[in-house]
Amino acid sequence: MTETPVLQVDGLVKHYPVRGGLFGRAVAHVRAVDGISFAIAPGETLGLVGESGCGKSTVGKAILRLVEPTAGRVTLEGEDITALGRAAMIAKRRRMQVIFQDPYSSLNPRMTAGDIVQEPLVNFGIGTRAEQRERVDALFARVGLRPDQRRNYPHEFSGGQRQRLGIARALALGPSIIIGDEPVSALDVSVQAQVINLMVDLQEELKLSYLFVAHDLGVVEHISHRVAVMYLGKIVEIAPRAALFETPLHPYTEALLAAVPVAHPRLRRKRIVLKGDVPSPINPPPGCRFHTRCPIAVPLCREVEPPLIANAAGHAVACHLRSA
């Protein structure tokens, strides 16, 4: 990558204290995100996948500083935003927006659709009222909502339309990157396709970057340029899309791909099913965090944590036994 990345994350850590006892002291920490690094180029989509509890949503929140990172650095368009004060951070949010999974709970039920999309413009004092209204109309048209729906309230929209509304709101300030936290997971397949197509079109038109956090590997393969796989707070593999899906290296990535249901009944196969559940992020296993479920683990894996090592093609894997 020769261009300056839009977003660069270095050694991001987020530990949540578990409080207990009489004085509510931290008795343990949930190590939700435990030192992860990646960069996203302009116009690029990085898919971030993993199972529940792996910390993928926390990554998005920590980058946005909706939760304060415990350690690490987040650089947005070349500027370190980790240490910015509240006011400076608010200004930065113009460049970095978010779309949430549940369009029901992320839209104010007492505001009209038009006001919801206009609100960011009002907050940042962009343009006159008339100009703002024009911009809202343009945004409505762009995401496929009718101008007369401006006066409707969120409950009057379907799930897919609400997600379009969330996208219009995110676009209002002209961000360079949008963080989507499971943005299509709550939608039916036919509507999900509409929203995915819209996101791809907008990206090409506006040169947007996306951090696309999702658990659906089919969707991630479709939309991403590069993909990072997380397990228990760590990135275990990160690679260009084709390399990750065609030649996965980490045993966890392999297992994740093998677990995806087949696309045609004739492709049914006997698969290697991972045993057991994900261990608790309060006490992650020593060494490689995946060793407790790994089909190829050796004694070394229980003791030494494998570093994430990349090859020249940008395929990185954290495994003692597999190298890129």
Partner: peptide, 13 residues
């Protein structure tokens, strides 16, 4: 046709 699936025939993006 609406469902993106792994190694799907729709072509990337």
């Amino acid at each position: 046709a609406a469902m993106p699936h792994l190694g799907g025939g729709q072509g990337h993006r």
